[in-house]
């Protein structure tokens, strides 16, 4: 299959008051249509910056692309041209972390959904301004059913604060699907939700991706959630890709010391969860070589000077480490 998303050697720097912050370091990533990829990492690992780069909404004043490119269906998303602006919100849409703050509190949710249809609906479904209010409403009601919400006008007349967290996030997913995109970026979509609602939302995303051949890039710091719904999991540390794992091999095949420590930090019955000692590397002054080396028990002189290049160990498994651990089995 032809790749939908191609990221080559992307390095990104933010200008800050304390000097340049190196938030992404030589990221390579391709995704095919319909694939669900989880981007796992701690806060500050660069996963949100990567998501924003794909959407083409990096803060223009601070962000500087040091190298690389991001292409979505052949369109350069780091450009600011018409093709990029048309792609944003149509070819690729977005499910935010906090569905409450992401709604404007002063408008009914129906108005906000209708504006997405009005300005972002695919051109193929007819000229967007010619389509009537009634047609827009029909599209929205259909979509409510697709995200398992009651397809009622009553819901659309409500304001964001009158809805539950789960309802709001389902509406956000509905808004992301209305333009009929080929790719969806979900930035920690369940972080603001109750645990039971999290499971439902993840299941919904998984099902929708399969039904619509929609590529989903899903950022999270929750390994369990990623394993739940993803075909591939990318583990990021301080702006570098540490390891890319296929879903089925995730727990068994992980060989990067950071991935293994992440797994060990998961709470399990009968086991004491183990934290990762040390602090996450600062993007202001990242350690040379492998950025994980100051916290890695296996770090050698080589790790402190030479960055390990990602190498393919087996099908679907990519590893960037000088001293990989043996497989757990």
């Amino acid at each position: 299959m032809n790749p939908l998303l191609e990221i080559d050697d992307l390095s990104l720097t933010f200008r800050t008051e304390k000097g340049p912050a190196h938030v992404l370091d030589s990221i390579d990533l391709t995704m095919v249509p319909g694939e669900v990829v989880g981007l796992v990492g701690e806060s500050g690992s660069g996963k949100t910056s990567l998501a924003r780069a794909i959407l083409g909404v990096l803060p223009g004043a601070q962000a500087e692309i040091a190298s690389g490119r991001v292409r979505l269906d052949g369109i350069d998303m780091l450009d600011d041209g018409k093709a990029t602006r048309d792609a944003r919100g149509r070819l690729v849409t977005f499910v935010p972390q906090d569905p409450f703050d992401s709604f404007n509190p002063l408008f009914g949710v129906g108005t906000q959904l209708a504006d997405i249809v009005r300005y972002r609906a695919p051109p193929a479904t007819g000229h967007r301004l010619a389509r009537s209010r009634r047609a827009r409403e029909a599209m929205i009601l259909d979509m409510l059913a697709a995200v398992q919400l009651p397809a009622s006008r009553d819901l659309l007349n409500r304001y964001p604060h009158q809805l539950s967290g789960g309802q709001r996030q389902r509406l956000m997913i509905a808004m992301a699907l209305l333009p009929q995109p080929r790719m969806l970026i979900a930035d920690e979509p369940t972080a603001a939700l109750d645990v039971t609602v999290q499971v439902q939302i993840l299941g919904l995303l998984r099902r929708i991706a399969a039904e619509r051949t929609l590529a989903v890039l899903f950022t999270t710091h929750d390994l369990g959630a990623a394993w739940e719904i993803c075909d591939r999991i990318i583990v990021m540390y301080a702006g570098q890709i540490a390891e890319i794992l296929p879903r089925k091999a995730f727990f068994a095949a992980a060989r990067h010391p950071y991935t293994r420590m992440l797994l060990a930090s998961l709470p399990k019955p009968g086991h004491q969860a183990v934290g990762i000692p040390g602090e996450s590397a600062s993007p202001l002054a990242p350690p040379p070589g492998c950025r994980f080396n100051p916290r890695c028990p296996l770090a050698s002189q080589m790790c402190r000077t030479v960055r390990p290049l990602p190498s393919r160990s087996e099908e679907g498994h990519l590893l960037a480490c000088h001293h990989p651990l043996p497989t757990a089995s």
Binding site: R88, R90, F94, D101, S102, I116
Partner: peptide
Amino acid sequence: SPSVAYQTAMGL
């Protein structure tokens, strides 16, 4: 505000 960031990301 986050709502404006969201709408910008959605290309309104």
